[in-house]
């Protein structure tokens, strides 16, 4: 099993046809994942935050968004944006950008869950201490809860980045020339080197994911794990509302056990 082609092939795997054509290959996977994470970060934070609100009209839309996006296969999302965005916008957008948009929409829903869990993992006493010292909810969130939540979230965010990176492979279906597509192209050009070309694809993904997931594990050891998937707080927490209300909120909605300071 020898290496397919020459040096130019390795470059093709890593960068695509870069100097002469568009960026592709493994680099494109990374670029897609980074762009999607960057674009979705704010939206995800807002969604995760509003999911904690006690106000129905803030909470329900964000729950709907998160749950619907999480229940839809990524391929479906990509098709929606690839085929139907042009109808809506009235003009064509490139394959690359429709992939980026779909991935961002997808990532926002998952990030929202990471944010929510991160915020809820900050002990409730922190928010209380901040409120008692006269800070507004917004200030308490900004200076006290959020910085701590962010730190807790880092390992989950890195893990999510790995999974998003793997998911970018799906974009090959609409013709984005990323690593999988590159492998298929090479194997079709040189059918005799089929094994090697797929092997290269596998190795490419493996190296990036392996190192990133080890980074995530290291961070987890340092910062501490918290299990996102089994973490399902349905707490609706008054103090996370953007603006305080004076409307009386029934007590059933106040969280049970887990959220109360550990002293009790």
């Amino acid at each position: 099993m020898d290496f397919p082609g020459s040096f130019s092939n390795i470059k093709f795997y890593l960068l695509g046809a870069y100097p002469n054509g568009p960026v592709g290959g493994l680099l494109l996977n990374i670029v897609l994942a980074i762009l999607a994470i960057a674009f979705s970060f704010l939206v995800g934070a807002l969604l995760g935050y509003s999911r904690l609100s006690c106000r129905k009209y803030i909470k329900v839309p964000s729950v709907l968004y998160i749950e619907i996006v999480r229940a839809t296969p990524l391929i479906m999302l990509i098709f929606w944006f690839y085929f139907f965005l042009p109808y809506v916008l009235g003009k064509n957008i490139s394959v690359f950008w429709s992939a980026v948009i779909a991935l961002s929409i997808y990532a926002a829903a998952y990030e929202a869950e990471i944010f929510r869990a991160g915020i809820l993992a900050v002990p409730r006493g922190q928010m209380e201490a901040a409120l008692t010292s006269g800070m507004t909810r917004y200030q308490a969130m900004k200076f006290i809860v959020f910085p701590q939540a962010l730190k807790i979230m880092v390992p989950s965010l890195v893990s999510f980045f790995v999974s998003l990176f793997k998911d970018t492979s799906v974009t090959f279906i609409i013709g984005v020339i990323e690593l999988t597509q590159t492998g298929i192209i090479v194997s079709q050009r040189q059918p005799d080197k089929m094994y090697a070309s797929y092997l290269c694809v596998a190795i490419g993904y493996f190296i990036v994911c392996f190192s990133m997931s080890h980074l995530a594990r290291m961070l987890e050891k340092k910062i501490g794990v918290f299990d996102l998937e089994s973490y399902r707080p349905d707490a609706c927490r008054d103090e996370y509302m953007l603006m305080p209300t004076h409307r009386k909120i029934p007590d059933e909605k106040v969280p049970a056990a887990g959220c109360y300071p550990p002293g009790l």
Binding site: P123, G125, Q126, E128, A129, T132, K151, P261
Partner: peptide, 11 residues
């Protein structure tokens, strides 16, 4: 207010 578990900001 002073709490039983201090609630200092750890960061």
């Amino acid at each position: 207010m002073v709490f039983q578990h201090f609630n200092l900001y750890p960061h």
